[in-house]
């Protein structure tokens, strides 16, 4: 579904990613783990067009999307729930969700049943339904995270990128977020997940890649990575 080949990216003159290659097969959950500053978020940003890769090839559904602006990539069916949530603070929860379906409401994506999907998102995140008319900026961190995920789902994406969905959340909410991720996996949604809680991420994922200083050091089926001593050291090094 999503294919990345030899991706390189830089901030200014500083190269951050070196020859990243990975693939996310249809219906699977793939996770990208690594310590802070390893380049996880940069990879996500390069895939969704928030930054321009310096070289490499990214394709979605067999179509090349390398270097396209983020709005075109979204229209091709890739949704990105960014690091730090980035909800539209002055708009209501409902409006935020509707904007997630912007390509469906305008052009670029099949329209489908937008009101129905909205209702389903509210079912998945009952807290959002209670606050449907509230400004997104006044939500708590956990609620904003739900909103960011719900907003990305409203695209009916072919691939969903989730960047640090548990960041800044209380342990109880982290559990909730992972419960939702497994539920989405059950519905057959293809996902690329970046997480600092590597253990939990590998629990839910089918396949994992470990990023170290902008390079992929190890990759393999999630079950195998969980027991890899080197991987254990890498993420336990950050967590003990």
């Amino acid at each position: 579904m999503l294919q990345i080949e030899n991706l390189n990216a830089a901030y200014g003159k500083v190269e951050v990613l070196h020859n990243i290659s990975l693939s996310v097969p249809k219906g699977k959950v793939v996770t990208l783990i690594g310590s802070n500053g390893a380049g996880k978020t940069t990879t996500m940003r390069a895939v969704s067009g928030m930054i321009q890769p310096t070289s490499g090839k990214i394709s979605l559904n067999g179509k090349a999307i390398t270097g396209l602006p983020s709005n075109k990539i979204a229209r091709s069916g890739l949704a990105h729930s960014p690091e730090g949530r980035r909800v539209f603070a002055t708009l209501s929860v409902t409006d935020n969700l509707l904007l997630g379906a912007f390509p469906r409401l305008t052009f670029g994506r099949e329209k489908g049943d937008v009101p129905g999907d909205l209702a389903r998102i509210f079912e998945l995140f009952p807290r959002l339904k209670e606050r449907a008319e509230q400004q997104a900026g006044t939500l708590s961190g956990g609620e904003q995270q739900m909103l960011a995920m719900g907003r990305a789902l409203m695209l009916n994406p072919d691939v969903l990128l989730l960047d640090e969905p548990s960041m800044g959340l209380a342990p109880l909410l982290v559990k909730e977020v992972f419960r939702i991720i497994s539920e989405l996996k059950g519905r057959g949604i293809t996902m690329l997940l970046v997480e600092q809680f590597a253990a939990a991420a590998l629990e839910v994922a089918d396949y994992g890649y470990v990023l170290e200083n902008g390079r992929i050091s190890v990759h393999g089926p999630a079950g195998q990575l969980k027991n890899d001593p080197a991987v254990k050291a890498a993420y336990l090094g950050a967590a003990h």
């Binding site: 980035r86 409006d95 695209l155």
Partner: peptide, 25 residues
């Protein structure tokens, strides 16, 4: 209108608006 909301979204957070498929340019 959804287009108007797209305008507000762009003024809130241009990068995130781009991720929604909004042509912020």
């Amino acid at each position: 209108s959804i287009y108007g909301k797209a305008v507000v979204a762009t003024s809130n957070d241009r990068d995130a608006a781009g991720l929604m498929g909004i042509n912020t340019g």
